[in-house]
């Protein structure tokens, strides 16, 4: 580390040697995070593409599969995630004001809400295993009387719906797990008092990630649970 003497004045300990100042460092991190989220859009985009095409092809099967999902749990989970987004947004604010205790509390709340979401998701998945709605050799689906007498439902094709259900919610849940881990680390550092009004980029960026995962779920909820609920 041989910093040129020119940039020694008011040197923030969190500033890395190759940046001219904290502002440049913050802008770089922020842009990096948004670019990462753009890659995430495309990552989930592949599954949304598959979803769109198969739903276009197999609408009756998708509707039948969607009806078996528990809409209450889905809605509760949506609410849980929205609450966690609020705690994250407030935690960024707490960091901006350098309120260490409030920051830690809000981060812990976020982690707990994330765990609640994952727990509910686990309950839903477990019931799929009991109902044999997991794609594979033991898949079994007893179609209810179809809403329109003319629509024929191929139980095999309902596997496509459930494959997408598991892939999409599974990858989303994996992102949640990563997010919870991320916030656990941040809580530790926040407890140690690393973040203050001059340096809170990690909180901000983790927050962006969490909100993004929330947005994905905001779309997954109607796409998976609400395809055909009308009586």
């Amino acid at each position: 580390m041989s910093d040129s003497p020119a940039i020694v004045e008011s040197h923030n300990p969190e500033q890395q040697h190759h940046f001219a100042d904290m502002e440049q460092q913050r802008q770089a991190s922020s842009l990096g995070m948004w670019l990462f989220l753009a890659t995430e859009v495309m990552f989930f985009g592949g599954m949304f593409c598959a979803y769109l095409i198969y739903r276009y092809w197999y609408y009756p099967e998708f509707a039948a599969g969607s009806k078996t999902l528990d809409i209450r749990l889905g809605a509760i989970n949506t609410a849980v995630l929205i609450c966690s987004s609020l705690t994250v947004a407030l935690s960024v604010r707490a960091a901006q004001f350098g309120k260490r205790k409030l920051l830690v509390t809000l981060l812990v709340a976020t982690i707990l809400l994330g765990l609640v979401f994952l727990g509910i998701k686990g309950v839903e998945w477990a019931s799929k295993f009991e109902e044999h709605h997991v794609p594979g050799y033991s898949f079994h689906f007893e179609p209810q009387a179809p809403s329109h007498p003319n629509t024929k439902i191929d139980p095999q094709r309902i596997q496509i719906f459930f494959s997408l259900y598991f892939a999409m919610t599974g990858i989303h849940a994996l992102h949640m797990v990563i997010g919870v881990g991320l916030f656990a680390v941040l809580t530790f550092y926040a407890w140690k008092g690393r973040y203050n009004s001059a340096y809170y980029t990690p909180i901000e960026n983790a927050g962006l990630y969490w909100h993004f995962v929330d947005i994905i779920w905001i779309y997954l909820f109607p796409l998976l649970y609400l395809i055909d609920r009308k009586k």
Partner: peptide
């Protein structure tokens, strides 16, 4: 913008081989 799509595609292939998803 391109690589993530390959990543998810290969993930789905791996899921299909490993967990018998049927996409």
């Amino acid at each position: 913008l391109g690589t993530p799509v390959l990543a998810i595609t290969l993930t789905l292939v791996i899921f299909e081989r490993a967990f018998h998803l049927g996409i």
